[in-house]
Design a protein around this nucleic acid. Structure first.
Length: 297
DNA sequence: AAAGGAACCTGTTGGC
DNA sequence: TGCCAACAGGTTCCTT
């Protein structure tokens, strides 16, 4: 689910709520997600003040007092939802004889694996049905040398991400540009949605070999990536299935998709059939790719 | 070394 | 209506 714009949106929402507050209590409800939680995670979070937040690619870092950071990845279905004091949904009582989850289905609490509670009663839950997410607790000074962050490519919205830098990363690559852009070592934070949308904006076929992109095409691709990410952040991300903002609101960028999840629909840049058959769906490396075969070369 | 596919999970959707 | 297969925003690990 969450790509860079969704993580950025969630992080901003959490920052507004948590920065400056102190975690009074934390609770883990299972041993871990993709990997086991750190030893004594809940105990170690309790009593810490939240100093601030940072994002790196699709990872979120919550800086705590005493020089440690919580590293979070939302995986495919992860959410972090902040609930104001006194607003926690009441656990529903299961109907007599019914087989249902005592926490109640549909509100996400059935899959809330980690809960933080501030001194003044805010509750922040990490919910992740598929459990592809992860959480770690690491020294703040060693954030960038963490195994999961080391080796990541440039931040696409920072100045260092230039056509020259992207060209250097793609040079000689024999893989399709679609796959290369999903590689977090090439550029950080892109996923299936925004790769499709950026390639459409740049007029580049997802099947084109990455090694043929450096040069004029990279000059178009870098601004396209920056623009689509900026637009998506401004819209609060894309809500398809699981993603919500930290305040529970939906993102709006899904209404502005030009190709993603639009198989068969008219391409916004084309006159329609017979000149253009509309948005096509193909499978690359086991994942759906959407593109316009007429304008993307 | 680099590229492709399987695996990790649960929930939803669409076809028969 | 019901069942089952296919598919979903990601990443790592294992084969080629």
């Amino acid at each position: 689910m969450p790509e860079l714009p969704e993580v950025e949106t969630v992080m901003r929402g959490l920052s507004a709520v948590l920065t400056g507050r102190t975690i009074a209590r934390a609770e883990t409800r299972r041993a871990g997600l993709r990997w086991p939680f750190p030893e004594l995670l809940a105990e170690r979070l309790s009593g810490r003040r939240v100093e601030g937040f940072r994002r790196r690619g699709k990872y979120m870092l919550m800086r705590l007092s005493e020089g440690e950071s919580v590293l979070v990845h939302l995986g495919m279905s992860g959410r972090m939802v902040a609930r104001p004091p006194g607003t926690d949904p009441m656990p529903r009582i299961a109907p007599q004889g019914a087989f249902s989850d005592a926490r109640g289905a549909g509100d996400g609490l059935a899959h809330e694996h980690l809960l933080l509670e501030t001194e003044d009663g805010w509750r922040v839950g990490f919910q992740d049905p598929r459990r592809f997410g992860c959480v770690d607790l690491i020294p703040t000074e060693a954030e960038d040398s963490h195994k999961l962050l080391a080796g990541m490519g440039p931040e696409p919205l920072e100045e260092g991400f230039t056509p020259a830098a992207l060209s250097a990363a793609l040079k000689g690559k024999a893989t399709p540009i679609k796959a290369a852009l999903l590689d977090q070592g090439v550029v950080a934070g892109l996923g299936n949605i925004y790769v499709a949308e950026a390639l459409f904006r740049a007029g580049i076929s997802p099947r084109r070999l990455a090694g043929t992109v450096p040069g004029a095409r990279a000059e178009r691709l870098v601004p396209a990536i920056k623009a689509v990410l900026t637009d998506a952040i401004e819209a609060g991300g894309s809500s398809l299935r699981d993603y919500v903002r930290s305040d529970g609101e939906l993102g709006r960028f899904q209404d502005r998709f030009e190709v993603y999840d639009r198989m068969g629909q008219p391409c916004p840049r084309c006159p329609g059939p017979p000149a253009c058959p509309g948005v096509q769906r193909i499978v690359q490396a086991g994942r759906s790719t959407f593109f316009c075969p007429r304008t993307q070369r």
